[in-house]
Simulated assay, not measured.
Amino acid sequence: MTVLLVMLGAAVGAPLRYLADRAVQARHDSVFPWGTFTVNVIGSFLLGVLIQGAAEHRVSGAVGSLLGTGLCGALTTYSTFGFETLRLLEDRVRAYAVLNVAASIVAGLGAAFCGVAVAQALWP
Protein backbone atom coordinates (compact mmCIF):
# COMPACT_ATOMS: atom_id res chain seq x y z
CA MET A 1 0.00 0.00 0.00
CA THR A 2 2.85 2.41 0.85
CA VAL A 3 4.35 2.03 -2.61
CA LEU A 4 1.02 2.99 -4.18
CA LEU A 5 0.77 6.09 -1.98
CA VAL A 6 4.28 7.17 -2.95
CA MET A 7 3.47 6.59 -6.62
CA LEU A 8 0.25 8.60 -6.35
CA GLY A 9 2.02 11.49 -4.63
CA ALA A 10 4.79 11.44 -7.23
CA ALA A 11 2.25 11.34 -10.05
CA VAL A 12 0.94 14.68 -8.76
CA GLY A 13 4.28 16.15 -7.66
CA ALA A 14 6.23 15.67 -10.89
CA PRO A 15 3.80 17.46 -13.24
CA LEU A 16 3.21 20.10 -10.56
CA ARG A 17 6.96 20.74 -10.43
CA TYR A 18 7.18 21.05 -14.19
CA LEU A 19 4.19 23.39 -14.46
CA ALA A 20 5.24 25.54 -11.50
CA ASP A 21 8.82 25.73 -12.76
CA ARG A 22 7.69 26.87 -16.21
CA ALA A 23 5.17 29.38 -14.79
CA VAL A 24 7.70 30.98 -12.44
CA GLN A 25 10.55 31.01 -14.95
CA ALA A 26 8.32 32.58 -17.61
CA ARG A 27 7.83 35.59 -15.34
CA HIS A 28 11.56 36.30 -15.04
CA ASP A 29 13.89 37.53 -17.72
CA SER A 30 16.95 36.10 -16.03
CA VAL A 31 19.31 33.15 -16.39
CA PHE A 32 18.85 32.45 -12.68
CA PRO A 33 16.75 29.27 -12.27
CA TRP A 34 13.88 30.86 -10.33
CA GLY A 35 11.46 28.02 -11.12
CA THR A 36 13.60 25.27 -9.62
CA PHE A 37 14.52 27.49 -6.69
CA THR A 38 10.84 28.15 -5.98
CA VAL A 39 9.66 24.53 -6.10
CA ASN A 40 12.57 23.42 -3.94
CA VAL A 41 11.79 26.03 -1.27
CA ILE A 42 8.07 25.20 -1.31
CA GLY A 43 8.84 21.48 -1.05
CA SER A 44 11.21 22.11 1.85
CA PHE A 45 8.51 24.05 3.69
CA LEU A 46 5.92 21.31 3.13
CA LEU A 47 8.35 18.65 4.27
CA GLY A 48 9.08 20.65 7.43
CA VAL A 49 5.35 20.74 8.21
CA LEU A 50 5.01 17.01 7.55
CA ILE A 51 8.07 16.02 9.59
CA GLN A 52 6.91 18.01 12.60
CA GLY A 53 3.38 16.69 12.16
CA ALA A 54 4.71 13.14 12.17
CA ALA A 55 6.82 13.86 15.26
CA GLU A 56 3.68 15.13 17.02
CA HIS A 57 1.73 12.05 15.82
CA ARG A 58 -0.61 14.32 13.83
CA VAL A 59 0.51 13.06 10.42
CA SER A 60 0.14 9.34 9.76
CA GLY A 61 2.72 7.21 8.02
CA ALA A 62 0.39 6.90 5.05
CA VAL A 63 0.06 10.69 4.71
CA GLY A 64 3.81 11.03 5.15
CA SER A 65 4.38 8.55 2.34
CA LEU A 66 1.84 10.20 0.06
CA LEU A 67 2.82 13.83 0.65
CA GLY A 68 6.37 13.62 2.00
CA THR A 69 8.03 10.92 -0.04
CA GLY A 70 5.71 11.01 -3.05
CA LEU A 71 4.60 14.61 -3.56
CA CYS A 72 7.59 16.45 -2.05
CA GLY A 73 10.05 13.93 -3.45
CA ALA A 74 8.79 14.55 -6.98
CA LEU A 75 8.10 18.27 -6.49
CA THR A 76 11.63 19.08 -5.36
CA THR A 77 14.58 18.32 -7.57
CA TYR A 78 18.20 18.10 -6.56
CA SER A 79 19.26 16.83 -9.98
CA THR A 80 17.82 19.85 -11.81
CA PHE A 81 19.35 22.15 -9.20
CA GLY A 82 22.75 20.54 -9.87
CA PHE A 83 22.32 20.62 -13.64
CA GLU A 84 21.24 24.27 -13.67
CA THR A 85 24.13 25.26 -11.42
CA LEU A 86 26.60 23.55 -13.77
CA ARG A 87 24.91 25.19 -16.75
CA LEU A 88 25.39 28.60 -15.12
CA LEU A 89 29.09 27.82 -14.66
CA GLU A 90 29.41 26.67 -18.27
CA ASP A 91 27.68 29.86 -19.43
CA ARG A 92 30.26 31.80 -17.41
CA VAL A 93 27.80 33.42 -15.03
CA ARG A 94 29.66 32.26 -11.96
CA ALA A 95 28.00 34.79 -9.64
CA TYR A 96 24.57 33.30 -10.43
CA ALA A 97 25.91 29.78 -9.92
CA VAL A 98 27.30 30.67 -6.48
CA LEU A 99 24.12 32.56 -5.63
CA ASN A 100 22.02 29.56 -6.70
CA VAL A 101 23.93 27.21 -4.40
CA ALA A 102 24.03 29.55 -1.40
CA ALA A 103 20.46 30.79 -1.71
CA SER A 104 19.07 27.30 -2.31
CA ILE A 105 20.72 25.92 0.81
CA VAL A 106 19.81 28.87 3.04
CA ALA A 107 16.26 29.24 1.71
CA GLY A 108 15.61 25.49 1.70
CA LEU A 109 16.73 25.04 5.29
CA GLY A 110 14.94 28.23 6.33
CA ALA A 111 11.73 27.05 4.68
CA ALA A 112 11.99 23.67 6.41
CA PHE A 113 12.45 25.36 9.79
CA CYS A 114 9.49 27.66 9.04
CA GLY A 115 7.43 24.58 8.15
CA VAL A 116 8.33 23.03 11.50
CA ALA A 117 7.35 26.26 13.28
CA VAL A 118 4.02 26.40 11.45
CA ALA A 119 3.29 22.78 12.36
CA GLN A 120 4.16 23.47 16.00
CA ALA A 121 1.69 26.37 15.97
CA LEU A 122 -0.98 24.21 14.32
CA TRP A 123 -0.45 21.21 16.58
CA PRO A 124 0.71 22.46 20.01
Rank of each mutant, 00 (worst) to 15 (best):
C114H: 00
Q52M: 12
T38W: 07
T38F: 15
A54G: 11
C114E: 04
E90W: 11
A23P: 03
D91F: 01
G82E: 03
G73D: 05
L46Y: 01
G43W: 07
A54C: 00
V39N: 06
T76E: 04
E90V: 10
V6Q: 08
H57Q: 14
A95V: 12
G35T: 05
S60N: 02
E84A: 06
S65V: 00
R58E: 12
L16V: 15
A102G: 13
I51T: 13
G53D: 09
A55I: 02
L19W: 15
R87I: 02
S104H: 08
F81N: 06
A119H: 10
H28E: 04
L67R: 01
L19Q: 13
A97R: 07
S79A: 12
P33L: 01
T2I: 01
R87Y: 01
A103C: 13
G64H: 11
A10I: 09
A107Q: 03
I51W: 05
S44C: 15
P33T: 02
M7A: 15
F45V: 10
L46M: 14
A102I: 14
E90M: 11
A107V: 00
R92A: 12
V3I: 15
L4I: 11
V63Y: 00
L122N: 03
Y96W: 12
A119L: 06
V31C: 09
A20F: 10
A121V: 02
D21R: 07
F37W: 14
L46R: 00
A14K: 03
A55K: 10
G73C: 10
A74S: 14
T85P: 04
Q52N: 02
T38S: 15
A10D: 11
G64F: 12
T69N: 06
C114F: 13
L89F: 14
T80E: 06
A14Y: 07
V6F: 06
T85E: 07
R58Y: 01
G110E: 06
G61P: 08
L5R: 12
V24Q: 01
G43H: 08
A111Y: 04
V12A: 15
A95R: 15
G108A: 01
S79Y: 09
A111F: 03
L122G: 15
L5Y: 14
S44A: 15
A97H: 11
T36M: 09
S30I: 06
I51E: 10
A111H: 08
T80Y: 04
F81L: 12
T36F: 05
G35H: 03
W123P: 03
A26T: 04
